[in-house]
C-alpha cells in the first residue's frame, strides 16, 4: 500500500467534493475515508473493524473534520497525539466552524494546520490544493530519492 491520505469526514457531499478537488489537483494518491471519530481511531490503531490492518502503515496526512459522530474531532486529535506511533503524524483540521475556541483548542492539541472549509468552492479547492501540494511535494521527493 502506497502513500495515502486519511479523510475523516461524515458528510458524503463533502467527501465527494474533497475527492473531486484532489483529483482536479492531480493528486492520485489513495484516499481512505472514514465516517466517524471512532472509526478513524480504529483505522489508525488497526483495531475494531480495522483489526486486520497493518498498524505501521500510516497515512501521509489526516484531513480531520471536527464535528464528527461518536467521537469529536478534537478528541480524535488528542488520541492521535497521545499515541506513540501517531504523535508526529501531520493532522490538518478541516471544518466549517470558525469558532475561536475550536481554532485555539485545535492548535493546543497539536494540529499542524487549520483549514476552514469555505463555502466558496474556489477557496476550498485552493485550500485542499495547497495541502495536497504539501505532501505531494514530499511524495515526489521521496520518489525521486528512490529513483536515484
Amino acid at each position: 500500500m502506497s502513500k495515502f491520505i486519511l479523510l475523516v469526514e461524515d458528510n458524503p457531499d463533502d467527501v465527494v467534493l474533497a475527492l473531486r478537488a484532489l483529483k482536479r489537483n492531480h493528486i492520485a494518491n489513495e484516499v481512505v475515508v472514514v465516517r466517524d471519530g471512532a472509526e478513524a481511531l480504529d483505522f489508525l490503531f488497526a483495531q475494531g473493524s480495522h483489526a486486520g490492518r497493518n498498524p505501521e502503515h500510516l497515512p501521509e496526512v489526516v484531513l480531520l473534520d471536527l464535528k464528527l459522530p461518536k467521537l469529536h474531532g478534537l478528541e480524535v486529535l488528542q488520541r492521535i497525539r497521545a499515541h506513540e506511533s501517531t504523535c508526529l503524524m501531520p493532522v490538518v483540521v478541516l471544518t466549517t466552524s470558525s469558532e475561536e475556541q475550536d481554532i485555539i483548542e485545535s492548535y493546543r492539541l497539536g494540529a499542524n494546520s487549520y483549514i476552514r472549509k469555505p463555502v466558496d468552492f474556489d477557496q476550498f479547492t485552493e485550500a485542499v490544493r495547497q495541502l495536497g501540494m504539501y505532501w505531494l511535494v514530499l511524495n515526489q521527493s521521496v520518489k525521486q530519492a528512490g529513483e536515484l
Binding site: 457531499d13 473531486r20 471544518t95 466549517t96 466552524s97 472549509k117 463555502v119 466558496d120 468552492f121 476550498f124
Partner: peptide, 14 residues
C-alpha cells in the same frame, strides 16, 4: 455555523 453551511457548501460545490 456547521450544519447550515454543510448543505450550502454542497449546493455551491456541486
Amino acid at each position: 455555523s456547521h450544519d447550515l453551511r454543510a448543505p450550502l457548501r454542497a449546493i455551491a460545490g456541486f
